[in-house]
Design a protein around this nucleic acid. Sequence first.
RNA 1: GCCCCCGUAGCUCAGCGGAUAGAGCGGCCGCCUUCUAAGCGGAAGGUCGCAGGUUCGAACCCUGCCGGGGGCGCCA
Length: 584
Amino acid sequence: MPGLMSLLDAVLAPIFDDLVPGASPALRPSQRADFQADGALQVARALGRAPREVAQEILSRAMERGLEQMCDRAEVAGPGFINLRLSAGMLAGRLARLRPGAEGLGAPVQRRRLKVVVDYGGPNAAKQMHVGHLRSSIIGDALVRALRAVGHDVVRENHIGDWGANFGMLVEHLCDLGEDRGAEELAMGDLETFYQAARAQYETDASFAERARARVVLLQSGDPATLRLWRLLVDASVAHFDRDFQRLGVELTREDVVGESFYNPMLEDVVTELAAAGLLVDSDGARCVFPPGHTNREGAPLPLIVQNSAGGFTYAATDLAAIKDRTQRIGADLIVYVVGLPQTEHFKMVFAVARMAGWLGPSSEAVHVGFGNVLGPDGKMFRTRQGGTVKLSELLQEAEDRARALMIARTEQTGQPLDGDMARTAAAVGIGAIKYADLSTDRTRDYRFDWDRMLSFDGNTAPYIQYAHARVCSIFRRAGTAADLTAMAGRALPPEEDEERELAKTVLCFGDALQSSVESYGPHKLCAYLFELASGFTRFYEKCRVLDVAPAELRASRLALCAATGEVLAYGLGLLGIEAPERM
RNA sequence: GCCCCCGUAGCUCAGCGGAUAGAGCGGCCGCCUUCUAAGCGGAAGGUCGCAGGUUCGAACCCUGCCGGGGGCGCCA
């Protein structure tokens, strides 16, 4: 049950490929028709023939191969474009085949099921999560859901910072507080306070600093008592993360935590293997690999340092160990790193070294899915009014509060009490707004965090799309029937009104949108699609009556279209990790 | 100094080789006897940073420049 565009592509592509191997129809939505294929111009150039003539030949062959049954208008236009308008009967036929769930709605299920590991940059243990961690969890979560929807086998790994020198001072601070009181503070209070206290002590108290350094040595040498305290700290952090992640509505849980400490025992082997492969170079006492093509500010080769001159392993070593573990033990075909853009060069180097070492090979690859910063409404780094970092938990609370306030304002304005679960809806709308604002623009750009805009019910926002879905649900509540797509899909008649036709078309393009979203690791493409679908539905809703229309067949047909729309809206929002309340 | 990203309507952003550059917001004009007006329609608004080049065709590719952000050996 592919999307309309891939359906057309399936007919056209073989003809293009036959004329010029590798040539593509270059299909895209068109203002003059439903779709247009621009590829004939390329083919004509390669063949040295007249473009319109080539386009006509392609079109004729396509018509014989099934295009005729799909289109009620198919013509060559302009310099050699092929314009295609689908027949209403064809649209009805496709609607009839819609079923709930990924494949039934048109998700392009991949021919090869890949084992995909998604690495979320991960917060540091013993520190509070803040807006900086928002993006990797939100984007990562959306990618995981989309990759799974198209049939991949996805493993989440939350690569938290749970190891390193910081833990010396943290463990000592825990000792000073006393284990019981410390544990209580960690569980109840926020981690930031604990971390700051330890940090302050470390900076002002020389003897404490000395103990902290000694503690690091104990930790690294595997001292059981120290490890137990370390574990306490990490567990407390993970418990906090769990709470935030759950509230944010991302799938990450403690089960997905694979922190730096996990790779610790493998680092020695990583370095040994790099040495054995002849890749390791000693430079000023540090052990490095020099992947070609990277230079430092003096123009000299830039090293990837895996072990510093003090003998400590760096995060490059950890990243390499993680790649090795994922491809060799887990059997990953693809590793996706959802980490900020500033690390671009680091990952390029790590991937290059992993390939040199053979940990990434012909059958496995890694991609860095980078993202920009979160900026405040003023265009500068997002901060509290006091200039501190914004805590995630407080941000989420504010989102829910603001959403609730908007809902209350509305009920006062209309005089209609909200009959649903106010708290739950407020959470769905508030959290959804945050996530959608993050996901709806190209992830590689910085994005501006603006409460009023993201919570607006107008424009490309989560509330607007959720509202369209709620209206669908409202229709079915009044109709007194369930929005059962399986039962209703077959009742769709060939659409007659423009708004019906456009809506039907958009519903049937879900698979195309998901496809391009997954291919580019770009959730914003799915967002753009859902916005188009929601606005298409709203236009339909304004123009076409559903419940009080005659004859009964038309009513049933429109209900079927509503059911399909509601299903795709809810499913699509679900892929973004956003809830679709039935009432708003 | 070198490398990467960004510069599209007043604002926030899509588009990234194809036919007159698209949305949303804001401003202006309309639309609630009717399934949630938290909505819809309309008109206005752009030398796609600048200058060259490649191409039948460039916002999109190449070169240079200007402006903004980031990175560039022992933190992660």
